[in-house]
Nucleic acid binder design. Structure first.
Lengths: 109, 109
DNA sequence: TCGGTAGTTCCGAAATCCCGAACTATGGGA
DNA sequence: TCCCATAGTTCGGGATTTCGGAACTACCGA
């Protein structure tokens, strides 16, 4: 399989990031990847909270996050490893990601 | 005309704010209202940048911003005054709005 | 080579967005 | 009071986006 497309962080417009994280399930997926540093396999997070996500939907969520410059995906054998690009995003848009993730965390409580 | 519906800021979920501001035109409208403190009339910002926005679209953009708790709209005579609720949003989701507006400002440069 | 697991693509249904046209609301004359 | 002009909302339909099941591809181990 060809290497997946990842935009340079300078090419990512702010609206792409906001759009990607304006879906609570995508935001939850991103939070798990960021917290874990690296999540192996989509299937390991095939459910968010108590909600099951069909794998075709999951695949498109990963694509949105990837194209928004939020994660980097590499195939390792049969499974995928997803890394958060939060350091790059932080460098380009300081404070953005932490504010968004804090906002979601605030609602949860 | 009945007073418009404005949600309590505690009832606004973070995804509503992110969704509202994930459209660059809405973000630009919100930026102008926030900067000006109070913008009179939708028609005074019927164009964003060099882009003309039809008034039906403008009306729905205002509705989205209003229902996301970002602005407060009051009719004064025949025209509308729009106030930013950024202080309330800041109290609930600290740093969120400034990070988002900075992100858009960073792209513009 | 075969079988199983991991993800992607395809495609039709559902939801959402967009904007012109018609409508409603308000205030200012005459 | 009636009529007009201005400001904004609602309606309707076409275009775009999202969703998810089914079929497909990629990779590994046996």
């Amino acid at each position: 399989m060809r290497p997946l497309f990842h935009p340079a962080i300078e090419d990512v417009p702010p609206e792409a990031i906001l759009h990607a994280l304006s879906d609570p399930r995508r935001a939850a997926i991103f939070a798990r990847i960021t917290k874990a540093g690296c999540v192996e396999a989509c299937s390991s997070l095939s459910s968010v909270g108590d909600q099951v996500i069909p794998k075709s939907s999951l695949s498109s969520h990963f694509k949105v996050l990837r194209e928004a410059g939020l994660i980097r995906c590499e195939r390792h054998g049969v499974e995928m490893r997803n890394h958060s690009r939060c350091a790059e995003v932080e460098a380009r848009f300081p404070g953005l990601l932490s504010a968004i993730m804090n906002a979601y965390a605030a609602r949860a409580s």
